[in-house]
Amino acid sequence: MRISFTKMHGLGNDFIMLDRRETALPAMTPPVAKALADRTTGIGCDQLIVLEPCDSADFRMRIFNSDGGEVEACGNAARAVALLHGAPARVQTDGGVIALEPTTDGARVDMGEPRFDWTDIPLAYAMDTLAMPVGWEMLENPSAVNVGNPHVIFFVDDIDAVPLDILGPQIENDPLFPERINVNVASIVNREAIRLRVWERGVGLTRACGTGACATAVVAMKRGLVDRKVTVTLPGGDLSIEWTEADRILMAGPATESFRGSFEWDQFA
C-alpha cells in the first residue's frame, strides 16, 4: 500500500505528517514510526505526526518521537498542523485539547494551562517543583512543569557551556522522572528574552522545542525573572511565548512545508 506524506518543520524541528482524517491508512505502531523516522533508511524526522478523526475536537493529533515512543504534546508540530489544516481548529492530543490557527507568518497555538504539582510532572516523590533540591554535575536547583508533556528547566549563565549531549540523557532517564523528562538549559537575556537549548525526550538534541520554550518561559515568569510575554531564542530561531492572566500559554512562531512524497507501507511495517 502506497502512503502519501507531507514533510514539515518548525524552526528546524522536523516532522512526517500522515493524514488519516478522510483516507483510511494502516494503524501506526512504534516500530513503524521508528523505521520511518530513521534518517538513513527511512524518510527521517524528529517526530511523526498522525492526524485522525475525533469526536471530542475537530480532529486528533498523535505524536511519535524518533525512537518510536508515543508522547503527549509537541508545540512545533502543532504549528505545522495549523499550517497544514489551513484554518482555526481545536485539536485533541494525549496532553489535552489545544487550539491552533494559521497566521500570515506561521501559526499561533493556545497550549493550555501549565501544571506545577509534583504528581503532574510526574516526579518519583514529593518536592517543590519551582526550586527542586537536586542536581547533576554543573546543573542544579531546576524547576519542573508539565505543559502537555514534562519538562525540567535549569537556568545557567551560558547555555553553550553545558555539555547537554552528555547530561541530557542522564537527566532524561533519571529515576526521579518515572516517565522520563525533557531537559532544558536556559539563560535570561533580559526581561523580554530567553536563550534556550533542549534535550528532547526520545529524540535528543533538537534545533527547537515548542513545549520546551513554553515550559521555560512560564517557569522564568513564575520565578519573577521575566515579564509575561517573552521571545525564546533556540538554535533554530525565535518563538513568542505569552502566559495570560487567564492562565493560558500562547505560543506563536513559524512553520514550513518542506516537500511531499509517498512510501510503500510494507517496506517499513
Rank of each mutant, 00 (worst) to 15 (best):
T40V: 09
K222E: 14
H9P: 00
V218G: 01
E200K: 07
L234F: 03
E245A: 15
T104F: 08
A213C: 04
L167W: 13
T119R: 15
D67A: 06
R39A: 09
V145K: 01
A213F: 01
M1E: 03
T104S: 14
R20W: 08
V219I: 15
V71S: 04
L36S: 06
P150E: 12
T244Y: 05
V156M: 04
G96K: 04
T119S: 12
G12A: 09
A80I: 01
T206E: 08
V145P: 02
L36G: 05
G253R: 07
M138F: 01
E113K: 12
I98N: 03
I159G: 03
V71N: 03
I16M: 04
Q92G: 02
V71I: 15
N146M: 06
G10F: 01
G261A: 10
T103A: 12
G202F: 03
F15K: 02
R191S: 15
T129M: 11
A35T: 03
Q170H: 07
G135D: 07
G12F: 01
D160P: 00
G69Q: 13
I121C: 10
T103C: 09
V32M: 08
R248Y: 02
P150Y: 06
E70P: 00
R260I: 13
W199S: 09
D158N: 14
R191I: 11
S143H: 01
A87C: 02
D110H: 06
E140V: 15
I98D: 04
K229I: 14
D238N: 14
G112E: 11
L139K: 07
R115V: 03
D105A: 14
Q92P: 00
A82I: 05
D227K: 14
P254Y: 10
D227S: 15
D67S: 07
N184Q: 13
E200V: 08
F268D: 03
V145Y: 00
P122D: 08
D238V: 06
V226C: 14
F259V: 10
R248T: 05
K34I: 02
R60D: 00
A269V: 01
L139M: 09
A131E: 11
V230I: 10
T233P: 00
K7L: 10
R79Q: 09
D158Q: 07
N76F: 08
A77N: 07
Q267L: 14
A126M: 08
Q267D: 15
R201T: 04
D160S: 06
A131W: 12
H9I: 04
P133N: 07
N184A: 09
G68I: 02
R195W: 11
L11F: 04
A246D: 15
A73F: 12
D67F: 03
G236P: 14
L25P: 06
E22P: 00
R20M: 05
V97A: 08
G135S: 05
F5R: 12
V185A: 11
R248W: 04
E72C: 08
D247Y: 06
M111N: 00
P122W: 07
L18C: 03
G10L: 12
